[in-house]
Computed example of a mutant assay.
Amino acid sequence: MAPSAPPRRLALLGGGFSTDEDGLLDDWVLGQARTSRPQVCFVPTASGDAPGYAEKFLTAFRSRACEPSVLTLFRRELDDDALRTFLLAQDVVYVGGGNTANLLAVWRTHGVDRLLGEAYDRGTLLCGISAGANCWAEASHTDSFGPLDVLRDGLGLLPGSVCPHYDSEPGRRPSYREAVASGALPAGWAVDDGVGALFTDGLLTETVTRARAARLHRVEPDGGGGAVEHALGARLLELRMK
Rank of each mutant, 00 (worst) to 15 (best):
M241H: 13
T207I: 15
V219I: 10
L198I: 09
G226H: 11
L185E: 02
L83D: 02
T45H: 06
G111A: 04
H165K: 12
E238A: 10
L125W: 11
R173N: 00
G196A: 15
R37N: 09
R122T: 00
V106L: 14
V70Y: 12
Y166Q: 08
H217T: 01
P170E: 15
L87I: 10
S69Y: 07
D113H: 02
T100I: 08
R76F: 08
A227S: 10
R114S: 10
E238F: 09
G194D: 02
G132I: 05
N102C: 09
G146C: 12
E169H: 09
P174D: 05
E21S: 12
A54Y: 02
E178D: 09
L73M: 15
H230C: 02
E138A: 10
S161K: 04
L78A: 11
A197P: 03
H141Y: 07
D91I: 06
N134I: 12
A2E: 15
V195R: 00
L216G: 00
L236Q: 06
K56D: 04
R114I: 03
R218W: 13
A50F: 11
E21D: 11
A119S: 13
V40Y: 01
R62W: 12
P3C: 12
G188Q: 06
A33G: 07
L25Q: 00
A46C: 08
L148K: 03
W28T: 00
G123I: 07
L116W: 01
F42M: 03
D49T: 07
L239G: 09
L104P: 02
L185H: 07
A54F: 01
T19M: 05
P3T: 15
L185M: 05
S18Y: 14
R172A: 06
L30Q: 01
Q32I: 14
L204C: 14
G233P: 09
S63T: 13
